[in-house]
Design a protein around this nucleic acid. Structure first.
Length: 490
RNA sequence: CGGGGUGUAGCGUAGUCCGGUUAGCGCACCUGCUUUGGGAGCAGGGGGUCGGGAGUUCGAAUCUCUCCACCCCGACCA
């Protein structure tokens, strides 16, 4: 176990916080519920962002930026989605501060009260649809496929680093289409991109499926999500994709002239993933030594620890090290040398805490053998490798590690997914083992709510590969309408 | 909003009950030397309005009053 980090077994929540703070991903901000994403954490996010941005652009989406501030009137009653977080919005009521009489402080200048109060966006549907109304006239303007990378604010009371903070970073896509069918295809296409991102970059296996009415986005016809399992077997909703139907078109009067020359309301989608993904990576792969980062998104893929007895040795070793880093950099491998004065043992632990996939140890002993010692973070194995094959060895090992941690996560999830037949069994699994529970559900909100109330487990999704044929509802005993995945969730 | 608790250096703390040296210790930090294959050693050094304010007293981290901040439990919300 690493120094100063609570073990997962002892207290998973404390482990999570300890790892994030000590590995330098993030820190708490001065306002309650805010966090600072530190350079190491931000680079991790940037790598995720880069991968997703590329996929979105390749599938025909373009980026734009809409304002942070939204007129309060936009959140008026016709926008049904507001119910979801109207009570959690930050509201700007004044636009000026003044110095207090004693000159020691500042206070809100009452004279600066705004005519119309302004909301800090909790999501951007309303601003964006107010603009789409201006931009869309005919089917020739469609589809409109816009994404934005932005910060949003939801005034949360219970916060957890990366998982729930009052302000967070995300991307939100907002598209407009001619037909319902096209909107549905878009919704599913994005879900597939999210699945690809989660599994092939974050090495985090996810279930894809449909949300129940009670769990879906308030303004949506249908919400799909990707659901991952964390190291404590709880579920994390890692991304959502909504088919909004004509709800927002109705609310904002966005009509277009269709191919039959008739006026019609456009069909919409919206979808997003956030910095919550970083929390997902931490909890999907981390262990008692700290982070375990997937090579594809790790800010540093290889860290080199030179081991020198004296200055003369150091010079010899650095000559070889410089050669190695140059070769690796040329191949696009993100490599860093730790030349600090800390002891080797300290550095080993430090970089394991930071989750760097590969560590190279190079001392005189290795150099005389034309070797280096290579340690992998995921298995903690050490081996000696030949210096003349170092780039090839590292490249293929990075791929191996990426694959291995995905497989590990898949096995863990599958091992902790249980198919149950009775409610007794259901309660037993949820309270003793946790994980995903798969069973029949009669499709009623009453059963869903009762189960949530009695067990704290919610329906994470109705997976695409599910089949209710022959199943009975775990709660009511009636014929099942869906086969659902239940779990305790973040 | 109700109940309980805690505030001493960047972090963790001793001292507070029972007022009395220069507020002590560990980690971290700085300088130098020696070190380096699983959390190095020695020596020297810097850093404190003891949460803020008022009071009692010859004297307050310590006693009294007051304000503030944060944490936990409950309620509320999801």
């Amino acid at each position: 176990m690493s120094k100063g980090i609570t073990s997962q077994k002892e207290n998973y929540a404390n482990w999570y916080t300890d790892v994030i703070l000590k590995s330098g991903l993030a820190d708490y901000g001065p306002v309650k519920g805010t966090m600072v994403i530190k350079p190491y954490g931000y680079e991790l996010w940037e790598n995720i962002k880069l991968a997703l941005d590329k996929m979105l652009k390749e599938s025909g989406h373009v980026n734009a930026y809409f304002p942070l501030f939204i007129p309060k009137s936009f959140l008026a009653s016709e926008a049904k989605h507001v119910e979801g977080f109207a009570k959690e919005c930050a509201v700007v009521t004044h636009h000026r501060l003044r110095t207090t009489n004693d000159g020691q402080s500042v206070e809100v200048d009452p004279e600066s009260k705004l005519e119309e109060e302004v909301i800090v966006r909790p999501t951007s549907e309303t601003v964006i649809w107010s603009m789409y109304k201006k931009w869309i006239q005919s089917y020739r303007d469609l589809p409109l496929l816009i994404n934005q990378w932005a910060n949003v604010v939801r005034w949360e009371m219970r916060t957890r680093l990366f998982l729930r903070t009052t302000e967070f970073l995300w991307q939100e896509g907002h598209t407009a289409h001619e037909t319902d069918d096209e909107a549905e295809k878009e919704t599913l296409k994005i879900l597939e991109i999210y699945r690809n991102l989660a599994e092939n970059y974050l090495a985090m296996p996810v279930l894809t499926g449909l949300k129940t009415d009670s769990e879906k986005f308030a303004g949506a016809e249908k919400t799909y999500s990707i659901e991952a399992m964390m190291g404590d077997k709880r579920a994390l909703q890692a991304g959502t994709s909504h088919n909004l139907g004509q709800n927002f078109a109705k609310a904002f009067g966005v009509t277009f002239q269709n191919r039959q020359n008739k006026e019609d309301l456009v069909y919409a989608t919206s979808w997003g993933v956030s910095t919550r993904l970083v929390g997902g990576v931490v909890m999907a792969h981390g262990d008692d030594k700290g982070l375990v980062l997937p090579p594809k998104i790790a800010p540093i893929q290889v860290v080199v620890i030179p081991i020198a007895k004296n200055n003369e040795d150091k010079t010899t070793i650095m000559n070889h090290v410089n050669d190695i880093t140059a070769q690796c950099s040329k191949k696009g491998i993100r490599i860093k040398v730790d030349n600090s004065n800390n002891s080797p043992g300290f550095k080993f632990n430090e970089w394991e805490l930071k989750g760097v996939p590969i560590r190279l140890e190079i001392g005189l002993r290795d150099i005389s053998n034309k070797e280096a010692v290579l340690a992998r973070r995921d298995t903690i194995d050490k081996q000696s490798i030949k210096l003349n094959q170092i780039v090839e060895t590292i490249s293929s090992l990075l791929d191996d590690i990426q694959e291995n941690i995905l497989n590990k996560a898949v096995n863990f999830r599958d091992k902790n997914t249980t198919i149950v037949q009775s409610y007794k069994e259901f309660k037993n699994i949820i309270s003793n083992n946790g994980g995903f529970v798969r069973c029949g559900w009669d499709g009623t909100e009453a059963s869903e709510a009762a189960i949530k109330n009695e067990t704290k487990a919610t329906i994470r999704c109705i997976p695409f590969n599910s089949d209710p044929t022959g199943l009975k509802c775990i709660y009511s005993g009636d014929k099942a309408v869906h086969e659902a995945i239940f779990a305790k969730a973040y």
